[in-house]
Simulated scan of single mutants.
Amino acid sequence: MNLLVNAKNGPGGATQAMPDGRKPEPGGWNRIQIKFDDLNGFVETLRKADLRFRNEIVTGFGGKQILLDDPAGNPIELFERSSK
């Protein structure tokens, strides 16, 4: 298991604001991260199943990510590492 920590104003996608203007802040933004090889394809599958996302896929330092809300409203980060 890895603990991933993002800088408050770093280049990563996790520091980007949500479409409604909310920015990541302490409390309520803690999340698990699940890695995928084809993030776009998996997100499309989940959208067809009417799952709720907090944002669109964003690209940041290290890869692409999107936040999915679980049934209780907790965020789950879906992540695809950028190929180098």
Rank of each mutant, 00 (worst) to 15 (best):
Glu56Ser: 15
Ala72Trp: 13
Arg54Pro: 15
Lys35Trp: 08
Gly27Thr: 02
Ser83Trp: 05
Gly73Arg: 02
Asn74Pro: 06
Gly28Ser: 08
Gly60Arg: 02
Arg52Ile: 11
Glu25Pro: 08
Asn30Ile: 13
Asn2Ser: 15
Gly21Asn: 03
Gly10Cys: 01
Pro19Glu: 01
Ala49Gly: 03
Gly10Leu: 05
Leu51Asn: 01
Asp20Phe: 00
Ala49Arg: 13
Lys8Cys: 04
Glu80Gln: 08
Leu51Tyr: 03
Ile66Asn: 03
Gly10Glu: 02
Ile66Lys: 01
Lys35Pro: 05
Leu67Asn: 12
Arg81Gln: 13
Val43Arg: 00
Pro75Thr: 07
Pro26Ile: 03
Glu25Gln: 04
Ile34Phe: 06
Gly28Thr: 02
Ala14Asp: 14
Gly60Asn: 03
Met1Ala: 09
Val43Thr: 02
Ile32Arg: 12
Thr15Cys: 04
Lys48Asn: 15
Phe42Val: 05
Gly60Cys: 11
Ile32Trp: 02
Pro11Tyr: 09
Asn40Thr: 13
Asn40Lys: 09
Ala7Glu: 04
Arg22Ile: 07
Arg22Cys: 04
Gly13Pro: 15
Pro26Met: 10
Ser82Asp: 10
Lys84Leu: 12
Asn40Ala: 00
Asn9Ser: 13
Arg52Gln: 11
Glu44Pro: 06
Lys48Gln: 07
Lys64Phe: 06
Gly28Lys: 06
Asn2Ala: 15
Leu51Lys: 11
Trp29Ser: 15
Pro71His: 09
Ala17Trp: 04
Leu78Trp: 08
Ile76Trp: 03
Gly63Gln: 08
Arg81Cys: 10
Glu44Val: 00
Phe53Cys: 09
Val5Arg: 11
Asn55Tyr: 14
Asp70Asn: 01
Trp29Ala: 12
Arg81Ser: 08
Gln33Cys: 08
Gln65Leu: 06
Asp50Val: 10
Lys48Ala: 04
Glu77Gln: 04
Val5Met: 13
Phe53Gln: 10
Leu68Met: 07
Arg54Trp: 07
Asn6His: 13
Ala49Ile: 02
Met1Phe: 11
Pro75Leu: 04
Asn2Arg: 15
Gly73His: 03
Gly41Leu: 03
Asn74Val: 05
Thr45Val: 00
Asn55Ser: 12
Asp38Arg: 03
Met18Lys: 06
Asn2Leu: 04
Val58Met: 14
Leu78Cys: 10
